[in-house]
Design a protein around this nucleic acid. Sequence first.
RNA 1: GGUCCGGUAGUUCAGUUGGUUAGAAUGCUGCCCUGUCACGGCAGAGGUCGCGGGUUCGAGUCCCGUCCGGACCGCCA
Length: 600
Amino acid sequence: MRTHTCGELRAEHKGESVVLKGWVDTRRDLGGLVFIDLRDRYGLTQIVFSPQANEDAYETAQQLRSEDVISVRGTVAARKDQAVNPAMPTGTIEVQGDACAVLNVSDTPPFVVSTQDESRVDANEDLRLKYRYLDLRRPALQRNLELRHRFYQTTRRFFDQHDFLEVETPVLMKSTPEGARDFLVPSRLHPGHFYALPQSPQTYKQILMVSGLDRYVQIVKCFRDEDLRADRQPEFTQVDVEMTFATEEQVYDLMEGLMADLWADLKDTEIDTPFPRMTYDEAMRTYGSDKPDVRFDLKLQDVSDAFDGCGFRVFQSIIDDDGRIMALPVPGEGDRGRSAMDRLTDYVTDTIGAAGLIYIQQGEDDEVPSCNVSTNAIPQEHVEAAFEQAGAEPGDLVLLVAGPTPTVYEQAGQLRLHMADDLGLRPEPGEGPDRFLWVTDFPLLEWDDEHERYAPMHHPFTAPKDEHLDRLDDDPGAVEARAYDLVLNGHEIGGGSIRIHNREMQARMFDVLGIDAEEAEQRFGFLLDAFRYGAPPHGGIALGLDRLIMLIAGASSLREVIAFPKTQSAKEPMVNSPDTVDAEQLETLHIDTVSDEEDA
RNA sequence: GGUCCGGUAGUUCAGUUGGUUAGAAUGCUGCCCUGUCACGGCAGAGGUCGCGGGUUCGAGUCCCGUCCGGACCGCCA
């Protein structure tokens, strides 16, 4: 039996007879002496085998290779002063091996598992994912999974202390008409019918409020069949929260308390509460994003006025069409050279997708600011007015992006992030201060160009602000919602709202969204029915657990905090999913597949 | 659906203007080595240059297509 782990022996254990089990991390064979660093989840311990101590154990140790699983019996010995390894927590001792049993041999691993040498840990991510069980032996990933475990514990304890009930909702539910694409599950018992995996348990948790559960929480898997990003996986985990009679302030307060507990437990850090708040409108106008990274300055400035009447056709037509000209003042870059500016222009057109980049510069030795568009096209007075309106000073650079709103805000916001990276203003993952922010006063709806209709910005159950209700029919785009997002360091880590709890209001919302009464009845009839029977006001929020852990861990990808993540093409290389299935299985499910050619 | 980056030894990478037998480090194998800790020393094995096609006297290198991985845009109520 194992008496200790590989991370716990110290000088105080000197003389004890111990049994350790684990993996061979590294092996140093000096000829007449073999050192093994033995690894388990808890750490590394040096074992030394010599023929004097035990001939058999020594001979076995000579045969050991990386990742063999062994059991060692031995005596804890204090190391001599010059032999102490201060880099190892167990570095003051070693175990003198009296017996060594190989429990299982390992093939030579496809990459070096030991992370004792940082320069050897780099293996391609697809290889690491294919051999995820080896990758997961490494302390960095184990540490992330441990953080995740502690996140669960703190979160459950916090909500339990606040009288929340954790309730499981179905994973097999039904498809909803809007939002992300659903993952569908064919029904064997009902040919042609499908379950859908939940994009979130939104309607179920609202029903639980109608049921009088009062306070609900669930740590729950959600599924969205959309393209992946470094911070987006098709299956992800939410901390899903809903409260009866909730107001915005109660949700803010609750979440700030949770964050404080999490930061205390996981990062041993105190965070300042309450968190600052910013309206959606201000976020878009000053940061060009609904999840602004406020860890650095670089604020946008609307300089449309300065160019009104300037005669420059590109700008004038945008102004006349209610578009905006957004300025990003960049301090100290007034002397940035032509080739660097050309590269920046390429970035703006190719990556950000704006029509072009116009800029105003005033170098340290320049009398006046000058624009890369000639003064024939834009009179100098407008150039100077814009430079001043942007808040720029001699020595600065002002970047201009023009276009229709809200696109131009987002493009300017992308440019802001690009410049921040360029200037080294944005802290690396895991570094710098954590800046929480509530973004509030979201629009209820946004215009969907593709379908030429309004779509919910949050979801169709979000309550409009009472004072905006009268505009819902004639100017839906101007209606604000009782919705809020929690933002951390430029990442959206949660979003929620006060919900509609009134049947008529909900029906009216479906109507505004172009969902006719029949479809509303088919898709959401259960909710509309439930609202007939005394549905209390309620609201809540859902946190992106994976993203939060990614930020807490200082990782730059969700793949670092998920045990078995999917690649950007939504595959899981270890088990090789998704995969084909037997024809018989498909038949049982009443499914026929078509090839791409037939499909097209 | 699109833009960009990458794919060369088990692994991480280098590879000049298209030119002889494709290199390094590490890992692996063998031998030596009793205080190492990324042990060290010596020797050795190890390659479908992702795949297919094209240009060329000649392709790792140029062109086209395709697959895989990554970052991003679209998408993500």
